[in-house]
């Protein structure tokens, strides 16, 4: 890398050694806290383990048979897909829209940007507390606000019944994570050359035509990466859903992450939970491989 032509083979070897030495602590920690647990999860998935005593015995593929033939995994997979597609769609639509607005020359632009970005960095615990208070069926601002505006006639039970609970979770997820899209799209918007717009204007393109013909094609690459990354992160989301609904009512908002947690620490079946988590990872692997190949090529 560094002036390869001029350095001697001996120096090159000693550089390689130094390089390995520098990465060694990272590799050690990685192996200890990520690689080993990952392999252990796969190993545990062929055992039946009772969480409080941690005693278990080998059951072979039984956990996987239950995963494939039982309802729980497929039900949760369906819930996860509805949540992911719902919240991701809102994030992208609002995110791109908001980025286009914030790209304009508006009053107090940096203050507006800060206010929009804030939810993304906020702790999920804080976000959930605030929204549970907003959604409160008796005193919540959401119900009263919508009633005062004439949109609702009666207060709604936001998190305790379906489909409201799913809508509520998707809405809060969109509110919390759409700023990610805003930041990424804004950064890209600033690099679109002005002359493209001027050329389109000369050709007589209106604002809407300019969006479809200039802005969107320029945003395409960044949008693909955002969609992949957010899809992966939304798919594995735990905190937000667990704290808002706990997976309820019954299991109607129980995503795969919640299923794994519930199986391991609610039903005390650690082996089965490990099998579910391996199944979940296999589903995610598709997206991960696409994302890694996409980023790897550019990096």
């Amino acid at each position: 890398m560094i002036a390869t032509q001029t350095i001697t083979p001996r120096l090159e070897r000693s550089y390689a050694r130094l390089g390995v030495l520098l990465i060694a602590p990272t590799i050690l920690v990685f192996s200890l806290v990520i690689v080993y647990p990952l392999l252990a999860a796969i190993y545990l998935s062929v055992f039946s383990i009772y969480t409080p005593t941690l005693e278990g015995n080998f059951v072979g593929a039984a956990n996987y048979v239950k995963l494939l033939t039982g309802k729980a995994f497929w039900n949760s997979l369906g819930v996860t897909l509805i949540w992911t597609v719902g919240t991701l769609t809102l994030q992208i639509v609002f995110g791109v829209g908001m980025a286009l607005l914030l790209h304009q020359n508006i009053w107090f632009r940096s203050l507006a940007r800060s206010l929009v970005l804030f939810p993304y960095f906020l702790s999920t615990v804080v976000a959930v507390l605030v929204w549970r208070w907003l959604f409160n069926d008796l005193y919540g601002a959401m119900n009263h606000g919508l009633m005062q505006l004439g949109i609702l006639d009666l207060p709604l039970d936001w998190l305790g019944s379906m489909p409201n609970a799913m809508i509520g979770v998707i809405l809060v997820g969109a509110w919390k994570y759409f700023p990610f899209v805003v930041i990424a799209v804004l950064a890209r918007l600033q690099t679109i050359p002005e002359h493209l717009y001027e050329a389109a204007k000369i050709d007589g393109a209106g604002p809407i035509a300019r969006f479809w013909d200039v802005t969107l094609p320029q945003l395409r690459n960044v949008l693909v990466v955002i969609v992949l990354l957010r899809a992966i992160w939304d798919f594995k989301e735990f905190d937000l859903i667990y704290l808002l609904t706990g997976g309820g009512p019954v299991t109607s908002t129980q995503t795969l992450s919640l299923l794994v947690y519930q199986e391991a620490f609610g039903l005390n079946q650690m082996g089965q939970a490990a099998a579910y988590s391996v199944g979940m990872m296999l589903v995610m692997l598709v997206f991960m491989v696409v994302y890694i190949r996409k980023t790897g090529k550019e990096g």
Binding site: I34, P37, W233, F235, K236, F238, S277, M280
Partner: peptide
């Protein structure tokens, strides 16, 4: 190694939590 880093960056926490819990105990 770089690819492995990216992979772990996307890994769900619930996969690691069970073995990590056992390890800490």
């Amino acid at each position: 190694l770089a690819m492995l880093v990216l992979f772990t960056y996307l890994l769900p926490s619930v996969v690691l939590i069970i073995p990590l819990y056992l390890m800490m105990v």
